[in-house]
Design a protein around this nucleic acid. Structure first.
Lengths: 338, 338
DNA sequence: CTGTTAGCGCCTTCAT
DNA sequence: ATGAAGGCGCTAACAG
């Protein structure tokens, strides 16, 4: 079979402790011996078994990433930041993709354990009250990215201010002169407890209120995430009497749905309808979509950096980092027609 | 620390072999004992250490996936098929993302080893001559997805016939009456040895030839993968005298670039220019892009199934599965203007 | 049916 | 500076 450390030791005529030392760059080995061992390693094409190493070390040498729907553009971009940053560390990336609440619960329960990972990154999944305590006594450092919760103050987090983001997007439409502004998002109450739609909704309401505009329930649509769902919602919203002249969608994907609906109804964008998205995913630029840009890649990167810091020095104080979001004005918003 | 199998055995008043048997659903344990052990496991919140298990079993219980640019839509969709299928197995997914030829070489050399993975899936990366032998004697089963090579006949593969696909796409344009047809793709010669652009190019040439149309070098453009690059290429191709009336792009992403170029040059699609893409990524439908649909998800799924089969029965004969590709006609192709 | 024992491959003292 | 020995947590083979 494959060569083991014992084979190397034998062939090099040294004890296997010495080989181990060479492997771990211990200074306690003579240059001459080191070279000899190294050459045997080379000759045997020997590679230490990660598993044995981990077991012996009592570490798993990997960080677990729990992420919902990792194929969605925004999550994917965060993941890219994670992968990219982790690559330079000694840790492997183990991905746990969540597509159902059951999976979420199972992973929250089973993944944050010393036997599975040295550290855990949780993307966009706000733990619920019952999850917090287990998470904190999990004995493995946890960093949340894009997830918050009142009782999470003691957990490490990298977040953005979605309320402010919602306000900014809405304000942009107000500034253009729109008064009838729709908001379209995921279900505000959803089994994953995603908060972004809710927070952006809050921002939307705040901006309206500040502008002295009454909230109009029929201008508010929510449905499961997806372009098709958003499209249906938008069609309904746009076929009512006194339809909105602008729609703020809680994600770019949903903004696409809105634009599809507009096309279906022969409404021109932005002449007849202004559309603002959220995330600034890659395709947004191609489509000239006005949107809120989040530092998605960066959020993944910062999360990993935080985790690595904690891994290196467990005494690191829990901290919360807030990433900015900015409005990117492109071609889907304009002043309403008179 | 965390409970070990020994703690469970002690607390349950049994030998640790018995606990192991319970864990592995061995029938050789009385129902009564099993229940007692189970309850202790529950009480201690015990979970067996994967590492110890792997080491003892002499298996890693994971399959490695080597994939180039996993964030590109097509690869991602393949990956989804892989993840989805692997989830139901006992194997974990370990991802090796390749962004440079050096990484490719390093992973090809280091990943297919018993110590790292029980099986390897390689996506879209055709091994070179020098890689084949090591891969075959790697001692771990390897399945290639979307990669082929003359000397690979003895490796397991799931592929599509890109030459035929290129022919079909081109034929569609010919059938519409186009005679000046451009082809735009990645570099035909590239450091990763990606073959799809080359094969589709072959199909393109074959279709032209069969139609008795001479190949026109200035109708052929190649550049690094990406929308921007494709756009530049397309602008150049479309600003020459006697410009093509249709362009076949080797990927949907590049087709987007072509459409951008058309917009820039005020050419209407499909009235002034027909565009065909390849892959049928999600956004293609939204944009009404005519394209070649590949069974992306399915290819990942089939690859895993093949691998699992081999893992379960190492004597399985190497096989090659060919997945179909079909033309999806949408709104970006039409007869040329007279 | 069940307890005991011998590794799996490596790292880490502890002597020397 | 180096060899030997113990142990990481688990599985499997062997006695009972």
């Amino acid at each position: 079979m494959t060569a083991t450390i014992r084979d190397v030791a034998q062939k090099a005529g040294v004890g296997l402790g010495t080989v181990s030392r060479v492997l771990n760059n211990s200074p306690l080995v003579s240059e001459e011996t080191r070279q000899r061992v190294l050459s045997v390693i080379e000759k045997l094409n020997y590679v230490p078994s990660p598993n044995a190493r981990r077991l012996s070390l009592g570490k798993t040498l990997n960080v677990a990433v729990i992420v919902p729907f990792f194929t969605r553009p925004a999550e994917l971009e965060r993941l890219r930041g994670v992968e990219h940053t982790l690559l330079e560390s000694e840790y492997d990336l183990v991905l746990y993709n969540v597509e159902t609440p059951e999976q979420r619960d199972a992973y929250f329960r089973d993944v944050p354990r010393r036997e599975r990972a040295d550290g855990v990154l949780i993307l966009s999944l706000p733990p619920r009250d019952g999850d917090v305590t287990p998470l904190k006594k999990a004995n493995v450092p946890v960093v949340l990215i894009d997830a918050h919760h009142p009782s999470l103050a003691s957990l490490n987090r990298v977040i953005t201010d979605d309320v402010a983001g919602g306000r900014t997007a809405t304000q942009h439409l107000l500034d253009l002169g729109h008064r009838r502004i729709g908001y379209l998002s995921d279900l505000l109450d959803n089994p994953f407890n995603f908060t972004s739609s809710r927070d952006r909704y809050l921002g939307y309401r705040q901006a309206l209120e500040a502008a002295g505009i009454a909230f109009q329930p029929s201008y508010h649509g929510q449905a499961a995430h997806g372009r098709y769902e958003a499209r249906q919602l938008a069609v309904r919203m746009l076929t009512q009497p006194d339809r909105p002249s602008a729609i703020f969608a809680a994600s770019d994907t949903q903004a696409l749905g809105v634009m599809e609906a507009a096309r279906e109804l022969s409404l021109r964008v932005p002449e007849d309808l202004s559309v603002v998205g959220y995330d600034d995913i890659e395709i947004a630029e191609y489509l000239g979509l006005t949107t809120m840009r989040q530092l998605l890649f960066e959020s993944g990167k910062r999360g990993v950096e935080l985790l690595l810091e904690i891994l290196a020095d467990p005494k690191t104080k829990p901290m919360c980092e807030i990433l900015p979001a900015e409005l990117v004005v492109r071609g889907t918003t304009a002043a309403p027609r008179r």
